[in-house]
Write a protein that binds this DNA or RNA. Sequence first.
DNA 1: CCATCCAGTTTGATCGTTCAAATCATCGCG
DNA 2: CGCGATGATTTGAACGATCAAACTGGATGG
Lengths: 348, 348
Amino acid sequence: MGEKPTLQSLASSLGVSRQTISNVLNNPQVVHASTRDRVLAEIRASGYRPSAAARSLRSRRSEVIGLRIRPAVDGINGSLMDAFLHALVECSQRRDHRLLLITATSDEQETSEQAALHTTGAIDGCVLTDTHLDDTRPAELAATGVPFVAFGRPWQDRDAGHSWVDIDGAAGTRLATEHLLDLGHRRIAFLGWPTGSGVGDDRRSGWQRAMADAGVAAEDLATGLLDQRTDDGVVEGTQAMERALRAGATAAVCASDSLAVGASTVLRRVSSAETARTAVVGFDDTPVAAALGLSSVRQPVAAAASRVVDLLIERLTTANDPPEPVHDLLTPELVLREFDRRLDQHAR
Amino acid sequence: MGEKPTLQSLASSLGVSRQTISNVLNNPQVVHASTRDRVLAEIRASGYRPSAAARSLRSRRSEVIGLRIRPAVDGINGSLMDAFLHALVECSQRRDHRLLLITATSDEQETSEQAALHTTGAIDGCVLTDTHLDDTRPAELAATGVPFVAFGRPWQDRDAGHSWVDIDGAAGTRLATEHLLDLGHRRIAFLGWPTGSGVGDDRRSGWQRAMADAGVAAEDLATGLLDQRTDDGVVEGTQAMERALRAGATAAVCASDSLAVGASTVLRRVSSAETARTAVVGFDDTPVAAALGLSSVRQPVAAAASRVVDLLIERLTTANDPPEPVHDLLTPELVLREFDRRLDQHAR
DNA sequence: CCATCCAGTTTGATCGTTCAAATCATCGCG
DNA sequence: CGCGATGATTTGAACGATCAAACTGGATGG
């Protein structure tokens, strides 16, 4: 084996110029078909790959996207981010981009790290996740000129100056609530988190509006007895469900699968196993919900990732000024698991 | 704001040459202290960052490491890889390297993708995870000249020509077994996976040897009744534990926390809740084991990641030929959760 | 018959750094 | 006083691609 081939070495062995080969790769339509084929054959035969560094130095684009990953706090919530990360890598790869990871212990550290990578040219832009109230990152990135797209809407001002993609949690809990209404339930509780988290409040609002629209349990809604607020967790779910039962609830929509798991074990004590399963709807459609046969709201994570990548790459390739920011709210899907036991066994 | 500063622009505004500034950053000791300080001050003031592309083009190193990520099959096993990934990013960052992700649907695709990135110079080397029997990746990477370090030993030939870091599963199950022996158990079962997986067989062997060394239940070991083999999963764990109970087992060492969760629910039926917890030891110390108060073998994932990064970077920075391959087996740690209920309540 | 155009191809300059060798100043010492 | 050694700094030449402009040669048309 000789040296690693370069544009120059290929060119002289083919009797054409560097630029022609470069054009075959980047502007195929300007090269004559016959030479194009000849060049392509030689490229394949020699195993030539353009140097990322040289290309990036000249074109001022690295085709790399930055992303901060966070330590998984628990196995449950982690799996969602994991699916998102995976989809993100896949979509980027499909579009000839790569994903670079960073860690940070604070939002400020994250943005400064991203900005540093951006000025060295290591990344062209980045993806923001886990947006929250009073999130300063969009402003900081904008100030340093780092292109980005957020997964998660900006909870303070909906019409932010940047593009974002999010999943419509309220639509999800509405679907869940309407499903339980269809099953005949009227006193449907919501097990959610304390107010103050954008995601949690959003999910609660879907249940609230669906209940109001259906005109059921109006007095209970007013008293707030069906509206249980607690930290996330299985144990917390059981406790919240016990309180809801005392308030006369027969079913529950939950802000997470952890809460739903807890809720269904409580319901099992006062009703058939079948009812205990079908009267609870979780959120995120985690493996745990699938294993226990619980219905759950599934977030279209892969679609979200794909959209994020599309928007970011569009932003990166748009010649000069950034395009109009796009705000995209994807609708989740209700995964029903309501077979009775016999059907369940047939299915296996 | 003017243009982005470069070595040249900084040099002329300081009245020194490019190379001096370059030396301040890469070879501080050759520059006179006074000029060094002057340059450093200006660097900080201007916010100068060297161009990654230019640097990489000339020095032929990108300081980027490739890693394939896999879709999380279940939430349980995923959390371990997640912790490893996170530690990997952190360690790389500390050593001025970055982590680039790829996906692949097969081992061949993984190696060819890594090789492609390596020839473009996008990565300097890569990390291999989830090594298995008949793993062709080490040979393929070696053939294409991609430097790499594996997390997971090569199960076919222990003295492979490449460096690897792994966690001594047998030592972990030995610790677990000896702990149960200390508690007075004699008929200790092992709930593990079918033979043929390197990891599973390794974990089984630690239990086997510890039992043999203690000279207990010799006849049961011979019959294999205490050696339960099943697929991973909570349900599978309950079934295996039931069989083990029939064989007279009073305790169990498990190859995973999923199996342990199943086993402890079964034990609960025939003994006190306290005994059910303390007589089962899981593996991986997942959040689930922590939540249920199960003892478990904790893998030093962060230490492993740190070692992997160290070895890989050493391999990358060693001038010419690769250094002697290093094989590193880290010892896991037994996390005991054996408080009785009263203590447990005090602790809260 | 010459000017014009156009598809196809080539040429020179450039991106911003590091490498390798050259230069310059200072100093010790025979 | 001159000469080599030593330390600090500078200079020229890559690294390998893309950009922008210039060059071909044949077809078109007035």
